[in-house]
Nucleic acid binder design. Structure first.
Lengths: 171, 171
DNA sequence: CCATTTTCCATATCGTGCTATATACCTTGG
DNA sequence: CCAAGGTATATAGCACGATATGGAAAATGG
């Protein structure tokens, strides 16, 4: 998105409940982009969709199917995410003497270190930035979404996160 | 998503403001899938992301850039959507004697007919289904999202739309 | 008036969700 | 004990958001 200002003419927002799917996707895209940029600034190259996976693995190994159920995402999506994390050496396959169909994974030392870093340096900022974003006179869902869209148009999420960075998170 | 029940273990939902991007995308995906299926049942093969484009063209031609600004989507996304609509004969390029960089499009007769059909047969059901989905004790955004996720897990959006179809929309 | 910059659109490619289907392993029944 | 069916994962490919970049037309300015 090169146009930072959503104008007063955002048709998808005007449509309200119609095209709400597009709207959610747009929002999700922007939020993930912000998280991704912040992580990059912290030297963390993880892509946004990998975060929930490593969080899920925090307390012990899980199989592909278990991850899919835990995150309520499709199994092929998990398989893909797992592949990336394996390549980056953040997770390891767990030895398994039993059912040979199962593939369980656990965080590697590098993965645990990265998760700790994420939890210390990234998540608190994201938490604050999103909470800020969601502030305001609570109304209905559409009101929330409109406020979100508008707030994001005024100040992109990445910028909000950068602001938190420089503001008061010096660890 | 083959597992219709989100369990009580949806980690992405548990994470609250963290991973909200993934959550929005998941929701958007499901809503669009429902709309797509409903449209299919009505004999309308449009993909969900095309709806806002044809709605935007309802009141006259727009250029690629104007559409991108109107819908607050990226220009390449619009170019792609335009391409599909052209192939299906739902829009036509407008003659243009002036600036040769501009490409403006307008609804064809088929496109206008389809839009009318969408507005009559699809949008009212979507409106009702989403409104139902969003009902409940209005609280904060996360409450809304949790309710949405949960409601969608209990009864998929497609099923809700189909219910509306059989219920009382016999036009 | 020509060179440079800007604007508009197209193309290439990526990330992340999905479905459908193939494959390999396990389980079960006859 | 083997055939049939079920389950777990992988692969293929699509939809739809995005960014980055290229080419052509227009605007600008020296």
């Amino acid at each position: 998105m090169e146009n930072g200002n959503a104008k007063a003419t955002d048709l998808i927002a005007e449509l309200g409940f119609l095209c709400l799917g597009s709207r959610f996707r747009r929002l999700g895209e922007r939020l993930q982009a912000g998280v991704s940029e912040l992580a990059g600034l912290e030297g963390i190259t993880l892509q946004p969709a990998q975060f929930p996976i490593i969080v899920a693995l925090e307390h012990g190994p899980l199989t592909v199917g278990a991850l899919a159920r835990r995150l309520d995402l499709s199994q092929p999506g998990i398989t893909r995410g797992i592949g990336k994390l394996l390549v980056e050496g953040l997770i390891e396959q767990v030895e398994n003497d039993g059912d040979q169909r199962l593939r369980a994974f656990t965080l590697s030392d590098a993965g645990r270190a990265l998760l700790a870093r994420v939890q210390e340096r990234v998540f608190p900022l994201v938490q604050r930035a999103v909470a800020d974003l969601c502030e305001g006179p609570a109304d209905d869902l559409l009101g929330h979404l409109t406020r979100l869209d508008h707030a994001l148009a005024m100040t992109p999420f990445e910028q909000r996160l950068r602001a938190m960075l420089s503001e008061g998170s010096g660890s």
